[in-house]
């Protein structure tokens, strides 16, 4: 459900990039956002100058990235005063792109990303449990209660938003920044697991348990619950990769 998406999740798309191959990174970041519905069909992307400033790259790099997106059929560019790059309206799933992305990462890279992501968010959750005031805990419960439902897209938005809430509750700007950077890099892949109905219901249940652990100031419990949840998502992702490598589908039809 789009309405549950927090602005932080949207802004994370535009977090600065660091490495070489920057035009590919620009394309990948925006591709992930379009696939996950963070950028919605018909939406106008920020201007090329604005994208360059936000990503911290040269204008030419942004233009190259946008060419990749156009070639992939994800955006179209219109000229004129009301012009710009727009997300193309499509109902077709972008499974080919996702499968290419999954195949492009080695298993060892995927599992290492999961370890790093988990370590940061476990730390956020544990610290949140030590530092949340009763008002914070109540707000977190209410946030989760407001977020129920919405199918796969809603579950992804809720899961991503919940992680961000945990990071914010840690009261640590550095943890928040690092989490936003990691979520932009790895979140879209990790949250693919929420296309599975069984995982969706487990994540919803465990999110509730995490919120209760935080309300109960039980740091070790919050940490263990988060670790278990990320492990659950990572196991699904590695299983899906193996399925694709064998010539199967991203989502198990069974």
């Amino acid at each position: 459900m789009e309405a549950q998406l927090r602005p932080g999740a949207r802004e994370a798309i535009f977090a600065q990039l660091i490495d070489a191959g920057r035009s590919e990174q620009v394309a990948r970041r925006l591709t992930d956002a379009i696939i996950l519905g963070v950028l919605t069909p018909g939406e106008r992307l920020p201007s090329e100058q604005e994208l360059a400033r936000r990503f911290g790259v040269a204008l030419i790099t942004v233009r190259e990235g946008l060419v990749l997106l156009r070639d992939a059929g994800l955006v179209e560019t219109r000229r004129g005063r009301e012009g710009g790059s727009f997300v193309i309206q499509t109902d077709a799933p972008h499974s080919a792109l996702l499968q290419a992305r999954l195949r492009g990462l080695a298993q060892v890279e995927l599992s290492d990303l999961a370890v790093y992501f988990s370590t940061i968010i476990e730390g956020c959750a544990e610290r949140a449990a030590l530092r949340a005031s009763p008002v914070d805990s109540e707000r977190l419960r209410a946030w989760l209660a407001d977020s129920a439902g919405g199918g796969t897209a809603g579950a992804r938005a809720t899961a991503g938003g919940f992680y961000l809430e945990l990071a914010v509750l840690s009261q640590s700007p550095r943890l928040v920044r690092e989490h936003i950077r990691l979520q932009a890099e790895f979140g879209p892949l990790l949250l693919l697991a929420l296309g599975d109905a069984g995982i969706r219901s487990r994540v919803a249940r465990v999110n509730g348990e995490i919120a209760e652990a935080i309300a109960g100031a039980d740091g070790p419990a919050a940490r263990a619950l988060v670790a278990g949840q990320v492990q659950d998502l990572a196991v699904w992702l590695l299983t899906a990769k193996a399925r694709i490598e064998r010539g199967g589908q991203l989502y198990d039809p069974a």
Partner: peptide, 27 residues
């Protein structure tokens, strides 16, 4: 900052272009 990088002087917050119904409900 992850979003704006480093700025040397005052700059306008550019949420305006991105405000839509979901954000409205948020803020």
């Amino acid at each position: 900052t992850p979003l704006l990088g480093t700025t040397s002087g005052p700059s306008r917050l550019d949420l305006a272009a991105r405000v839509n119904t979901e954000f409205l409900r948020d803020f």
